[in-house]
């Protein structure tokens, strides 16, 4: 046997090891990447299964799932996309649940800039307010609702700079190009404290709850690792981790 054939056979023998039967492929909305990493490590320790995380935007995942992407579980950034996938037969019926509820925060990188009641919005001494695109990002839609309920939308809207997602909305503020903006509490909180700058945690009654839903996708049905991962996410240990990042359940 030639060395080349031998090498080929060796590769072929190694392949099943790469495609792990006990691994669950999880499509994770980018805003949940930090908690998801921690959860995946803990899940592996607890169950011996491996959670392979793929990060991206919810809209991009929708297109990929519709076109045969090899994901077993979807942790979306909203509740409408998983519902739509279920309706269209790409997710298992009845598998959806809310794994995290986001809190909106008005944040500035400057300490003392945002007061704890959001009065800074009324004073209007700023050039740019960063928000995530309300058409795409639930946090952006919640920001619009909040401004609407404060009767400030018309006054503030001309100063919007729109980001494609909340990660970019955060970058606009963190680099000082926007004085303040609406981002996720999970982005500015570290170990249950504000990591930097100043913030107003928007009261939950100012907008519809920002529910992030999970769904078991068609490919994950009957996979033990996928079932285990969803069970783990509903457990108290996972929920404590999720809460420590500024989410509610």
């Amino acid at each position: 046997m030639s060395p080349f054939i031998k090498a080929l056979l060796l590769c072929a023998a190694a392949l099943p090891g790469l495609v792990r039967a006990d691994a669950v492929q999880v499509a994770v909305a980018a805003n949940f990447s930090a908690p998801a990493r921690l959860l995946a490590a803990d899940f592996e320790k607890d169950t011996g299964h491996k959670a392979v995380l793929i990060f991206g935007s919810t809209g991009q995942f929708y297109a990929q799932i519709k076109n045969g992407a090899p994901f077993d579980v979807f942790l979306a950034a909203d509740e409408t996309t998983p519902a739509r996938l279920e309706q269209e037969g790409n997710a298992a019926a009845g598998s959806r649940f809310t794994y995290a509820t986001g809190r909106l925060v008005l944040w500035s990188a400057k300490p003392g800039y945002v007061d704890d009641k959001g009065e800074v919005l009324k004073k209007g001494q700023f050039r740019h307010v960063s928000i995530a695109n309300p058409k795409l990002a639930p946090y952006g839609a919640a920001a619009i609702e909040t401004l609407n309920s404060l009767k400030l939308l018309d006054a503030v809207q001309p100063r919007f700079v729109q980001a494609e997602n909340i990660a970019q909305a955060y970058q606009f503020i963190a680099t000082g190009n926007a004085e303040l903006g609406f981002v996720a509490l999970a982005q500015v909180m570290k170990d249950s404290k504000l990591a930097a700058g100043s913030a107003w945690i928007v009261p939950a009654n100012r907008h519809q709850p920002i529910r992030q839903d999970a769904a078991l996708l068609a490919r994950g049905v009957g996979k033990p690792a996928a079932t285990a991962w969803l069970g783990y996410l509903k457990g108290t240990k996972a929920q404590a981790i999720i809460k420590s990042f500024g989410y509610e359940i």
Binding site: L136, V161, E164
Partner: peptide
């Protein structure tokens, strides 16, 4: 750009927005 209509929202960004919004 900051995706501001008629100032910095160019066609490529507009297409991306449409795709993301399904």
């Amino acid at each position: 750009g900051g995706n501001i209509p008629e100032q910095t929202r160019v066609a490529s960004v507009q297409i991306y927005d449409h795709v993301e919004a399904l």
